[in-house]
Design a protein around this nucleic acid. Structure first.
Lengths: 114, 114
DNA sequence: TAGCCAATTGAAAACTTCTTCAAGTCCATG
DNA sequence: CATGGACTTGAAGAAGTTTTCAATTGGCTA
């Protein structure tokens, strides 16, 4: 009895639903990075970053390998980058849409119906 | 001062992170539908569905219009369908990957190292 | 092996989201 | 204008997530 696909999708999206986790995935888009570099690129404490990395690991979205005294993270599928691109497109559209709405509202203020 | 984009992305993904909301978006992929039809396609109580629709509406992901005594919902951008496709691809990969892992583990059980 | 740095873990408190139920709105029709 | 159907809302408790801090692990080098 498999987990229904819509439940798996929801879990997956929920996993992406945190600003630190999104930043991590963005930073990993261009290739693997050690924790040290993630930490340098995200305003968060080491232990909090670790917690968020653990969430991504448990979900199977990233993998970690120890190299000497540092740990290197990588995306486990390149499709994650596609997904982030799709999300960026939607958000850009939505923000543009809101911009238009705002413009309409401003106009309405000047040409108010009597 | 705009909301940072990674925060907006995280909010967006968080909004998708619920099985009922994922189902709604899947059902709306092929065109607008009245609440009645969503309700028929999802195992959930009317008031719970309404709560989830409100979350999607507030996030600007769907729009609703009243037509007589029914209310019709639609995706506000067609890109949402792209995103769901990208998510499906990733999940399919991930599940396939887990399948392989499982196969390896099973093998290991039979060829256990001393 | 002692001390240090990098990263992780466990656990408690603070916070957010989800579910549920009763009550409410809106429209059509008798 | 009362009734009924379709959908939404508010609010409260249950459930889940996030943050934080102290403690811990693993590896390196003196």
């Amino acid at each position: 009895m498999p987990v229904p696909l819509y439940q798996a999708k929801a879990d997956f999206f929920r996993t992406l639903g945190h600003p630190v986790r999104v930043r991590v995935l963005e930073l990993l888009q261009h290739g693997p990075l050690p924790v040290r570099d993630l930490l340098a690129g995200i305003e968060v404490e080491a232990s909090n970053l670790s917690q968020q990395l653990a969430v991504l690991r448990r979900a199977g979205i990233v993998t970690s390998t120890r190299e000497g005294s540092t740990v290197v993270y990588a995306l486990s599928s390149n499709d994650v980058a596609d997904l982030l691109r799709a999300a960026r497109r939607i958000l850009t559209d939505m923000i543009a849409g809101q911009g238009e709405l705002l413009a309409e509202l401003r106009e309405a203020e000047h040409t108010r119906p009597g």
